[in-house]
């Protein structure tokens, strides 16, 4: 028979772990330096997969001088992604189609970038998606 205290601890353990994880992610995002990384569609025919953008960092069009030692830490980005090593940026369902059409209609005139919160040695966290240097929400508002 498990003691009452152990039972309580076991039941609340997932809750505590998840809370700890969230706080860690919050701290990483809040304390990191903002870096802008150019992105390219993982598969141009399917930039939007579901309600997230699947992409890969485009290191040839990224300014590596913004990182502390002037080198792009490629191995740190999207470390947790396994399937085809594609990164994800989640977007609301209602905007998915508009963004998809935008990409399909003029893929060469648009420059997609993601602002990451970067702390040396840790997996950077995506914060914002930029289209031609402005946040994607603003871009969609201005270019309906």
């Amino acid at each position: 028979m498990i003691s009452k205290r152990l039972q309580t601890l076991m039941l609340f353990l997932p809750w505590m772990c998840l809370l700890g994880w969230t706080l860690l992610l919050f701290c990483t995002r809040a304390n990191g330096t903002d870096v802008t990384v150019a992105i390219t569609g993982y598969d141009p025919r399917d930039l939007l997969s579901g309600h997230y953008i699947a992409y890969q960092p485009d290191w040839t069009h990224t300014d590596c001088q913004q990182f502390p030692d002037g080198n792009c830490p490629k191995e740190l980005f999207c470390k947790e992604a396994r399937w085809g090593e594609q990164c994800r940026f989640y977007i609301p369902q209602t905007d998915a189609n508009a963004l998809d059409q935008l990409f399909r209609s003029s893929p060469h005139n648009l420059q997609f970038e993601v602002i990451y919160s970067y702390l040396p040695g840790q997996t950077p966290l995506a914060k914002q998606l930029l289209i031609n240097q402005i946040p994607w929400q603003q871009y969609l508002r201005e270019n309906p």
């Binding site: 992610l25 995002r29 992604a81 994800r88 914060k127």
Partner: peptide, 17 residues
Amino acid sequence: TIGLIAQIFHLSGGWTN
């Protein structure tokens, strides 16, 4: 909750993770 955290912090882990 895991799904929500992944969505808010744009984590790229797939189904396996």
